[in-house]
Write a protein that binds this DNA or RNA. Structure first.
Lengths: 215, 215
DNA sequence: CTTCCAAAAAATGAATGCAAAATATCAGGC
DNA sequence: GCCTGATATTTTGCATTCATTTTTTGGAAG
């Protein structure tokens, strides 16, 4: 795809991953000097990258007091889920307008895989398929701006780990499977507005389950 | 509100406005040196600001070839309208859940103002009210993440001027008024999913009108 | 022992300097 | 007259440096 442009670009990706993967504690200072040594660069490109990450909402920059890993309050998480729900709702609507049979077949195939993982209680496989389906719907929308916006929000929330807790809730898992059935059905019928609704509520329920399990 | 923290923050706002207001031609190089003199700063903070603006999608950074004002293709504009439509749809849904009577009354008041401007064919007043209503719906959603995301996309598209062309289309204006009536009605009834739909289609129609008048 | 204040140390924000890459300029050949 | 290629200029990207602010440390007073 991209020929790995500049040092800056690579650094930005590396630094983003470094933070998203949780190498820094929530609310912790982002040590410029240590990161400079870690990535073998000087402070100038590092600080440029930090400014970008701050714009993305991953960290926050306090004047004269450096960067901190942004802590996500329950309210922040609620907001993020709703916005992602809105974007997925949009993705579903757009997907209904333009998805190809091949793309739909691919989603359906993964859905069936997911169902098998669900029956076997293979959580790793289940979540992998789940994520893949949502990703494919966004991709099927054929809107790069949407995909980029969605990816940005997804990156912010990736620091928070729900999987372990969510996986324990068997009721929620069954409910989620039924919701996914409905998603597939609406997509099959190319029922845009309906799918839009289902997807938003699906995200709402996901949030509710996460809230119930974590606090 | 904010006490204008660092030089960087102020510069970022100034530079963003400078570009959004169209001081640089579409696709034009962003001259670092000239801007340094323009804002009386050195290249370091300017380059940091450029990185952020690139992350926001307002400019694009070509490796070793500097920054260029990002040109919006018709496809880009279509994408932006759809995503903003999706976000407004979300805003409408959330607004139905939590809007106060006072907030609704304010929107209704501006709606009536807009209707008067419409009757008088006062385009400036009409567009001002129109923008205010959409802004208030987003605000009434009570979701800062949504508001920030929406503002980011709105900034990208602000460079493109449709108003002049749109204003000439009297049919579209009447149609838009009717759509706004429907928006108010759905909001009054707190009919979230319905409002969601209306808002998305409203944006779609806006795009269609813009496309019809410009190309 | 705790609290408060001052000085030292470290970190941040911005400017300058320098090597590499890109663009522009110009001479020579067709 | 126009195209090609080498050189000069400009510009970009990053490192280094400097001033300012913050944080830490040490010690004295209560």
């Amino acid at each position: 795809m991209k020929p790995a442009t500049s040092l800056h670009e690579g650094l930005l990706v590396a630094l983003r991953d470094f933070i998203v993967e949780g190498n820094l504690a929530d609310g912790a200072r982002v040590p410029e000097r240590a990161l400079c040594e870690r990535f073998n660069i000087s402070r100038t490109p590092l600080r440029e990258a930090l400014k970008v990450l701050a714009a993305e909402g991953l960290i926050e920059l306090l004047p004269n007091r450096g960067a901190r890993v942004r802590e996500l309050s329950p309210e922040d998480i609620r907001e993020l889920f709703d916005v992602m729900g809105g974007l997925e709702a949009l993705a579903g609507r757009l997907a209904c307008e333009r998805i190809s049979e091949a793309e739909f077949a691919e989603i359906e195939r993964i859905h069936h895989d997911m169902y098998r993982f669900y029956l076997r209680r293979d959580m790793h496989g289940y979540f992998h398929c789940n994520q893949a389906i949502h990703q494919l719907i966004v991709a099927a929308a054929g809107n790069a701006t949407l995909a980029a916006t969605y990816a940005g929000l997804a990156g912010r929330i990736r620091r928070v780990r729900y999987s372990a807790n969510l996986a324990k809730d068997r009721d929620r898992l069954g409910e989620a499977m039924r919701e996914h059935e409905a998603i597939l059905d609406a997509l099959r019928r190319r029922a845009g507005p309906e799918l839009s609704d289902i997807l938003f509520l699906h995200l709402r329920n996901k949030l509710k389950a996460a809230q119930a399990s974590t606090g």
